[in-house]
Each structure stands twice: as structure tokens, then as C-alpha cells.
């Protein structure tokens, strides 16, 4: 991370730290903290996706599936087998990583539309399995009786506690991603994104790096999925379908596909737009939502971060 990024990081961290106190003072936005918890959870997914799309240049329309694998692994282990939630999280990550590896090896040989199609198909298959394996997943009616997160024997149920846990995790993920991008892997990824053939010719093991980032994005999605499970304490397959995969892609696109900050910004904005701000439009919200997407894709292809003049160049050379 450059000095500038550290400064932004500090500002954001301070803002996030005091946000609950502000929100609690103003009754009209006191529920914003609940939305922020979800925004934090989704940020972890979109950071992973941003690494994959913005830096490795690969599209994934299956992020909701990895989110779901993490969520359901945690959910099943804690509800059917009465595991403690903490050890269930790494199991979810492992499973998600293994699946991502199996799918990634053949899928990442494809490009553009074909890769989008393959990941989309895979995502739908996961969704169907979640729907059909009623005995394990509870099927379409959902998985109930999932315990809340417990740390040192204390049950985490207050929104504020969740808020700080989730955003700490999100910020750690952010720092981690920045560090990955600064390393050899990051330079290789940018080379792949610029011109894969050239990178290949220069001896960059492109296939291996792409796969690693794909697996990383799946693991991050699975961690977020575990958080989601224990926060909501209920799962149903509706949260892990194609629409959600598209939503994750949009979060990254909205903020700026080439910027980790953009991914977080886009996620927070889209979560608020979807859950709160479009309420005034009532039934019209679907049209407003579509219009926002269209405008962003047409006029801001580099996302909202591109309106900050310096942000763009800085994110270009992390």
C-alpha cells in the first residue's frame, strides 16, 4: 500500500469506528448499522471478486455459489452436527477452495463470454443442489436453528458487535489484498490483465496465477458466507442464485473494477441503494435500479472511483 492508500485507509477506519455512535444519535438512521453489517459481509465477497475481475481480468458469475458453499457448510456443521461456529468457518473455506480449484482448472482456460457462461452454469448447478438436497440443506424452505456466533463463550447478538467484527474482517481482507497486489503475484496479475499472451511469453505462469486468484476469491466468498450464516441464523437457496452473483459483479463494477477501494465503495452504495434508498420509489425501484446500472455501465465504465481524479492513477499502480 502506498502512503496515499494508508491515509485513505486511516480515514475510512476512523469513520467506520465512529459510525455506530453517529447512527445511534440520529433515530432516522439508527437502522443503518444493520445495513452496514450486510455491506461489510458483502464487501469481503466483492474484494475477492475485484481481485479476480479487475486484476486477473477473469469474469466470475458464480460468486454467490462460493458464498453459498461457505454459508451452508457453516450452517450444516453447526445445526446438524452441533459444531462450534469458529471451527466450521475454515472447513467452509477449504471446501470452497477445493470446489473452486476443481472448477477453475478447466474453466479458466476459457475467456470472455465463455468463462462467464461456464461460471454461470456452475453457479446455477450449486443453486439447484442446495434446493434439492433437502435432507442436508433444508431445501427451498431453508435451513433453520443455526446458532449465532460465539466467541469465548459469549454469544454475539448485538448489531454493534457484529458491525465491528465484520468490518474488522473486511478491512483485514483489504490490507491483505493490497499486499497481494504489491507482491510478485500482483505484478504478474496485472501483466495477465494487460496482455496474457505477452505475460505467458515472458515466462509468467499465467494459468497458475489465475487459478490461485480464483481460489482466493472463492475462499473470501466462503468466509463472508459463514459470517452471513451466523448473523442471519437462517439460510435459504434464494440468497445464492444467479441474481446474487450478478449483484456481486455489479458491486465491483459500480465502484470501479480496477480499484479495491472501488469494490468496497460500490458494495456499500449498492447495499444501501437496494435496501434503503430506493424505498421512496416503491414499485418503481426495479426501474430505477436498472437505470442506475445502465448509466454506470454506459458512462462510468471505470466505476465511481474514476470521478476522483487522483484515485484513478493511484489505483493503477497500487
Amino acid at each position: 500500500m502506498q502512503k496515499r492508500d494508508w491515509l485513505i485507509f486511516l480515514a475510512v477506519a476512523v469513520f467506520l469506528a465512529i459510525f455506530p455512535f453517529i447512527a445511534a444519535r440520529i433515530s432516522a438512521i439508527s437502522h443503518y448499522i444493520d445495513i452496514m453489517v450486510f455491506a461489510g459481509i458483502f464487501s469481503i465477497v466483492s474484494l475477492g471478486l475485484c481481485m479476480l475481475m479487475g486484476y486477473a481480468g477473469q469474469v466470475s458469475m458464480a460468486q454467490a455459489a462460493f458464498f453459498g458453499i461457505g454459508a451452508y457448510t457453516s450452517g450444516i456443521l453447526t445445526s446438524h452436527f452441533h459444531w462450534h461456529p469458529l471451527p466450521a468457518i475454515p472447513i467452509g473455506c477449504l471446501l470452497s477452495a477445493a470446489v473452486a480449484w476443481l472448477v477453475g482448472v478447466p474453466a479458466l482456460r476459457l475467456k470472455g463470454h465463455y468463462l462467464a457462461m461456464a461460471t454461470l452454469g456452475f453457479g446455477e448447478i450449486v443453486h439447484i443442489v442446495l434446493n434439492q438436497e433437502v435432507e442436508w440443506t433444508g431445501g427451498p424452505s431453508g435451513l433453520v436453528d443455526i446458532p449465532s456466533l460465539k466467541i469465548l463463550g459469549v454469544r454475539i447478538s448485538s448489531e454493534e458487535a457484529w458491525y465491528y467484527i465484520v468490518w474488522t474482517a473486511a478491512l483485514c481482507t483489504l490490507i491483505f489484498c493490497f499486499n497481494v497486489l504489491r507482491s510478485r503475484v500482483g505484478r504478474a496479475l496485472r501483466a495477465i490483465h494487460e496482455e496474457e499472451t505477452a505475460a505467458d511469453a515472458m515466462g509468467v505462469p499465467t494459468a497458475r496465477f489465475k487459478l490461485q486468484v480464483f481460489v482466493l476469491s472463492a475462499v473470501l466468498a466462503a468466509i463472508a458466507g459463514s459470517f452471513y450464516t451466523h448473523y442471519v441464523t437462517f439460510l435459504n437457496p434464494g440468497t445464492f442464485d444467479l441474481m446474487w452473483s450478478i449483484r456481486f459483479v455489479l458491486m465491483v463494477m459500480l465502484g470501479g473494477v480496477q480499484s479495491l477501494w472501488g469494490a468496497v465503495l460500490g458494495t456499500v452504495l449498492l447495499t444501501f441503494i437496494g435496501n434503503e434508498w430506493l424505498r421512496v420509489f416503491a414499485d418503481f425501484d426495479i426501474l430505477v435500479y436498472g437505470a442506475i446500472l445502465l448509466l454506470v455501465a454506459l458512462f462510468l465504465p471505470d466505476g465511481l472511483v474514476s470521478i476522483f481524479p487522483k484515485g484513478r492513477s493511484a489505483s493503477g499502480n497500487v
Binding site: V59, A116, M253, I286, A297
Partner: peptide
């Protein structure tokens, strides 16, 4: 535009058409 932008644009249009039909 990139493949990704085009995908998003057509998805946005489909959301708009669906909303209008609703």
C-alpha cells in the same frame, strides 16, 4: 466497451424491460 460492460448493459436492459412489463 469491454465484455463485462456489455454483459452488464444487456442485463440492465433486461431489468428495465422486465420492470416496464410489470
Amino acid at each position: 466497451k469491454s465484455v463485462l460492460s456489455l454483459i452488464i448493459i444487456t442485463i440492465a436492459v433486461s431489468i428495465l424491460l422486465k420492470g416496464a412489463a410489470m
